[in-house]
């Protein structure tokens, strides 16, 4: 993709969701600054998928782009949701973990590299099960390390959403940007229905699923920080704003005492809905 195309896209205010992972990364970085690392022509195919007779993708579904955001050094890790449901295997997981680790190492050497993760993922790739899980633990470790120096910003645009071990990674980010098409949850609807029954979780009831885990609800519950229209320009602007804001005073995951108290005080016998969730997250807040 040429820089002229980058600029043209930004001026048009195009859909972000429609872009591929690679295009998303290009559209966010400063024009002309994007450099892809460990890219498709390195042919880092998943050794485990091909061993199972499954067609592989040359980048294993993870795109790492280094460049500038508002003139500041940054790395964007973008997950391609349309390849194997955005699942993370050994290769893609290693790319993501390693990129964030290198960003943290930069900071220890005085280079203030920021991290951005574009989530579009069902979590662990089951065909690479334990190596996917291990890589996700390493991604968690890398985010925890990098957020000691710089904000790590997650973007969940849709339409795959962000699930499994990667929803935990989203929960470690300093800021989360979502759209209405985004979903964020630990367990995929199908798995919950299988484990707990259709009365507990009806995976085919889309309004129900979105009312609990959709971007709008997550933002209303302060589990995400910005709810945006599906627009590349707006998303980039918000990303730059969060970058400029620096590290949050108290990240969500540091409020354990607060949430523990709220959860213990609530009526856990009653089944949950969107309203009870909003009440939980807003109870005890300062007006």
């Amino acid at each position: 993709m040429s820089h002229q195309q980058d600029i043209a896209r930004l001026l048009q205010g195009r859909s972000f969701i429609e872009l591929s992972a690679r295009e998303r990364a290009h559209s966010l970085l400063d024009a002309g600054s994007c450099r892809e690392l460990a890219g498709p022509f390195e042919r880092l195919y998943s050794p485990w998928l091909s061993a199972q007779g499954i067609v592989t993708q040359a980048d294993d579904g993870v795109v790492i782009c280094k460049g500038l955001l508002d003139g500041q050094p940054a790395v964007i890790a973008a997950i391609e949701g349309s390849f194997q449901g955005g699942s993370l295997g050994e290769v893609g997981g290693a790319k993501l973990a390693s990129a964030l680790e290198l960003a943290a190492a930069d900071n220890r050497q005085g280079i203030p590299t920021r991290g951005v993760i574009l989530f579009e993922t069902g979590g662990v790739r089951l065909q690479e099960a334990n190596l996917g899980l291990a890589a996700i633990a390493e991604i968690h470790a890398a985010i925890a390390d990098l957020t000691r120096y710089q904000p790590v910003i997650g973007i969940i645009a849709g339409t795959v959403g962000c699930f499994g071990g990667m929803s935990i990674a989203a929960g470690l980010c300093s800021y989360l940007i979502v759209t209405r098409e985004a979903r964020l949850g630990l367990n995929g609807p199908q798995v919950i229905e299988q484990e707990a029954g259709v009365a507990e979780y009806d995976s085919r009831n889309r309004p129900f699923i979105w009312s609990l885990t959709g971007g709008e609800q997550r933002q209303a519950c302060a589990l995400a920080d910005a709810l945006l229209e599906d627009d590349s320009t707006l998303i980039r602007q918000q990303l730059l704003q969060f970058m400029a804001r620096g590290l949050p005073e108290q990240p969500r995951h540091r409020r354990s005492r607060h949430y523990l108290e709220r959860l213990l005080a609530m009526d856990s016998a009653a089944q949950a809905d969107a309203d009870s969730a909003r009440q939980l997250f807003h109870s005890g807040e300062k007006p």
Partner: peptide, 8 residues
């Protein structure tokens, strides 16, 4: 795995 878990 449950509805409360995801919602909360």
């Amino acid at each position: 795995y449950g509805r409360r878990e995801e919602a909360y």
